[in-house]
Amino acid sequence: MKIRTFKRHFVEAFKSMGRNGWMSFASISAVTVTLLLVSVFLAILLNINFIASQIEDDVQIRAYIERTEKPESYDVYQKDLEKLDKVKSVKYQSKEEGLDELIESLGDEGEVFSSLKEENPLRDAFIIYTDKPQDTAVVAKEVEKFKFVNKVEYGKGTVEKLFKVTDAARNVGIFLVLGLVFTAMFLISNTIKLTIVTRRREIEIMKLVGATNGFIRWPFFIEGFALGVFGAFLPIIVIAVGYQAVFDIVNQKLGTVFIELLPVTPLIPQLALLMLLIGGVIGVWGSLTSVRKFLKI
């Protein structure tokens, strides 16, 4: 396409947006609301996943071995565990190592336990890592079935709750967002339809003098795209400012011990790009669906 032709399409698109100001405004608002929710949901989901991956180290299964078992068979047992579905790796930890680790993790208070070294109350154990943190519960059940296993421990409460929350949030989010995306698309498609109706005469004449359908379609295509992209501006600003604020609060007030959020710089530009993309796609889709019907003459 020639540059002056593109310029013409561009001017036409913006003229038409101005002419149908209210509908354009409604479409942009619909996209804005949609993307606002999408971006907030995404920011939360990504952070939950990030936090989950931080505590993933705690997401290990500890299988204590019966005291009656002989250390000679441990190798075979370890192989058995490794063969289980969804198991990534299995590490052996003797009761002595276990105690050392415990003492170290307790710091000063741990000194008390040093006296226990003679009569170690712990058992030898296998530490099992799963492929995905979500698998821990299932794998733990399997491990429990082995005869040589005395007891299985894993970060039951926290981990399971965390994943329940993420899953629920994800499902609700997807549902809501899909609904909103369709609403936005519908509104844009209606706006474009309106602009087509007001430009009906123009299109008729364009066809008479031999304009191609592609040529006629371009301004509507640009208009839809612009409506979608404009709709992304506000959500990007809100998420950028809001996330920075939340990030600062979490970092200062809650300290660095408990949780750490995803850093602002890669996350926000990526989200911004995604919002622009989604906005553009919604807009183009909305405009193309209404133009297609109209050009079939």
Binding site: R201, E202, E204, I205, K207, L208, V209, G210, A211, T212, N213
Partner: peptide, 17 residues
């Protein structure tokens, strides 16, 4: 469109913009 470029069409109602 190519075919239409080889003919001019005129109507009773002018069809001007």
């Amino acid at each position: 469109p190519k075919v239409r470029r080889k003919m001019g069409v005129i109507f009773q109602d002018f069809k001007l913009l």
